[in-house]
């Protein structure tokens, strides 16, 4: 992982910035060159909701290189309150207590300690929302 490669994603990963289509209003994450709903390239960056609910989830028990220290860990498909879906780790909860539909919020966490160049990567994970 080179520094520029990490650096260019930080805004999106640290602040949960997605994109909104100026033509049809469809929002998505991560950003891409085109609106997935209407094909427009007239896109704006938008701050996404930081709360949502779990659509489905799993427990990763055999992780890829770089994630060994966290295993086993939860990964969930989260639907934010603005309708955008995000894939994320789920933290601060035991797997046995996770329920589909449960309310969650974004949290800022360490994601990975990079091997070669020694970058410590941060970003969003989700945790149970205390209402």
């Amino acid at each position: 992982m080179s520094v520029p490669r990490y650096w260019r994603e930080t805004k999106y990963r640290y602040r949960l910035i997605g994109q909104m289509c100026a033509q049809c209003g469809n929002a998505g994450f991560p950003r891409s060159g085109v609106c997935s709903a209407c094909g427009s390239v007239d896109l704006e960056e938008v701050k996404l909701a930081e709360t949502g609910h779990v659509v489905t989830w799993t427990v990763v028990r055999n992780p890829p290189a770089g994630y060994m220290e966290y295993a086993p860990y939860l990964v969930a498909l989260v639907e934010l309150d603005d309708g955008v879906r995000v894939l994320s780790q789920l933290v601060d909860i035991e797997p046995i207590k996770v329920k589909t539909g449960m309310r969650v919020e974004a949290a800022f966490r360490r994601v990975k300690v990079d091997g070669g160049s020694g970058i410590i990567e941060y970003g969003y994970k989700f945790r149970p929302l205390i209402e």
Binding site: T56, V59, V60, P64, V75, L77
Partner: peptide, 22 residues
């Protein structure tokens, strides 16, 4: 995608598991 899917630490089987549960 390495930046937003693999980045979460999800494995190929983990992705299968998400749809399996659903």
């Amino acid at each position: 995608d390495q930046e937003y899917t693999a980045y979460t630490g999800v494995t190929n089987t983990g992705l299968n598991a998400l749809i399996h549960r659903s």
